[in-house]
Amino acid sequence: MKFKRPHALTDAQFHYCPGCSHGIVHRLVAETMDELGVEGKTIGLAPVGCAVFAYNYFNCDMVQAAHGRAQAVATGIKRALPDNVVFTYQGDGDLAAIGTAETVHAATRGENITVIFINNAIYGMTGGQMAPTTIPGQVTQTTPYGRSTKDAGHPIRVCEMLATLDGVALAQRVSVDTVKNVNAAKKAIKKAFQYQMEGRGYTIIEVLSTCPTNWGLSIPDSLEWLRKQMVPYYPLGVFKDKGEKKEEGQ
């Protein structure tokens, strides 16, 4: 098998830090567009956060949204172009803090879009502050003594929360820490796009991701930290799947 750059990625070189998961996930999304042949009809939403420059990397048409607003912007695009494919690419601060309302309401409306959610338990772009998904005890720039649930509350399990909403067609948490998991992640992303193309409703793939730079760990150690600390709090799996058959009235 020849390893080549997916067409849906531009030639621009990623600016991401070594060991960051963004590169892998970008590739998986691009491969999905290639395989489904939808690059020409896809509009991607770049968030505010480390992935803000995603508009330089994806070859499909791209819109850069304000912090947290990607799913509202995506809603506007999808309502204008219902036959096109629309995806957002968002981090945990963008999606689960400042954009919580937009996320929950896009999901409950069953907005027919795909959300790629990068959960690395920290704010990357701004230098490693506490995220809504920072786990209890985790040290960040703004939780220097470890996240205290007494003061800072508890992390949000996004997939579990959204799985309670009727508008959600697919909510799945994956990881890209091993080859096996990368393959599973790819499958999930592709399934989400396919569901969207079938008009099934809101799809979200949460990807547990590493941030060696802001976690202050080496790349191998950060993979280990993800497995030991994050996975127990954020179990991998499918939290909602409307199934293969198209439901009545959808």
């Binding site: 949204a65 912007v73 809603t75 506007g76 999808k78 172009l81 309302a101």
Partner: peptide, 12 residues
């Protein structure tokens, strides 16, 4: 959200 939906529709 409403103004950002407008932004999306206009962008489209």
């Amino acid at each position: 959200a409403a103004i950002n939906m407008v932004l999306g529709a206009s962008a489209a």
